[in-house]
């Protein structure tokens, strides 16, 4: 393996140089905006527009972080150019964790069960039902928003965790689609042997399919977690109450306050930096597993 690798990867010095230069450029384009997020989060309000090219502002301040974390009282925060509304950072981040973890676990579990049925089990209308699942991917989400909002309200779930989680808790078409594609690529021999030994569907699913799909499920879990964490519109309309607001919604207050105003750039960038810490952590924790060994079979 190492032999073949070196043979395939043998490049001339020039090609290698160009490739590395392009890679470096790519990394710069990817990372520079993040540097700017961080730099802006340290910039005092009066310098935001006056030192637009400075790599670091001449005066640096941590007060934006203090405001986001609620360490600075409101009068002082307004004086520093912030908003009067405080972000209850600890509570908001807890809400985000509850919602994101809840959605991730249930969605991945139930979607993998459905994917198993679509990939492996034979039943009437299987292809039709699957086509129906996939076609809902194409319905503009704006169509779903209002009916779902009214439905969640009728269930008395407004301003609850369950209400925020509801639409994506049991499945998303994307998750079922994604996992089915992986399951189609799994060798059938193991399952067939298990069936021969008289194992039931449940055993086959838990003992064979889940372990074989672990990496794909992990990938989906990370995708689901990050999407749920960053979701804005739905948690905004369903969870307006302060005690239920997720972090992304809460940080929305740093956007436009009044028509024609300016966003609170410093507060917003400090908030964005802090809000990224958990998702970055997830990526670092699970990143290796996601990318190292997923086989993918595309469309079948």
């Amino acid at each position: 393996m190492s032999n073949s690798n070196s043979a395939l990867n043998k490049k001339t010095g020039l090609t290698k140089g160009i490739l590395w230069a392009l890679t470096a450029l790519l990394l710069f384009v990817t990372l520079f905006p993040f540097f700017w997020v961080f730099r802006t989060s340290l910039t005092p309000k009066s310098l935001i527009f006056t030192e637009p090219t400075a790599i670091m502002p001449s005066v640096r301040t941590w007060t934006h972080y203090g405001r986001v974390l609620g360490l600075i009282d409101r009068a002082r925060a307004i004086e520093l150019g912030g908003t009067g509304q405080s972000v209850n950072f600890g509570l908001n981040i807890l809400n985000s964790f509850i919602v994101s973890i809840g959605v991730t676990i249930f969605q991945v579990l139930f979607s993998s069960m459905a994917a198993f049925a679509f990939a492996r089990l034979k039943f009437r209308f299987r292809e039709m039902l699957f086509a129906l699942y996939v076609s809902t991917l194409m319905i503009p989400s704006i169509v779903m928003m209002l009916p779902n909002f009214v439905f969640v309200k009728d269930l008395h779930l407004l301003n609850t965790y369950l209400g925020i989680m509801a639409p994506t808790l049991l499945m998303t078409p994307f998750a079922v689609f994604f996992l089915r594609q992986f399951m189609l690529g799994i060798n059938r021999e193991l399952e067939e042997a298990a069936f021969l030994d008289g194992a039931g569907l449940g055993v086959v699913f838990w003992e064979i399919i889940i372990p074989l799909c672990a990496n794909a499920m992990m990938t989906l879990a990370v995708i689901t977690f990050i999407n749920t964490w960053n979701d804005y519109m739905w948690p905004l309309i369903v969870g307006k109450k302060e005690e239920i607001r997720t972090l992304t919604v809460a940080l929305g207050i740093f956007r436009l306050q009044t028509p024609q105003g300016q966003p609170d750039w410093g507060g917003m960038m400090a908030g964005a930096t802090l809000a990224m810490v958990p998702t970055l952590g997830i990526l670092i924790l699970f990143g290796r597993r996601i990318v190292n060994s997923i086989g993918f079979s595309g469309f079948r």
């Binding site: 928003m145 009214v150 407004l158 307006k240 109450k241 302060e242 929305g252 956007r255 028509p259 105003g261």
Partner: peptide, 21 residues
Amino acid sequence: ITQMGWGDYWTGLQTDMVGGT
């Protein structure tokens, strides 16, 4: 009292009117 920034205020209010809340 609940405060919501201008950008989300009206959409939020409208959905709440639709939902009766």
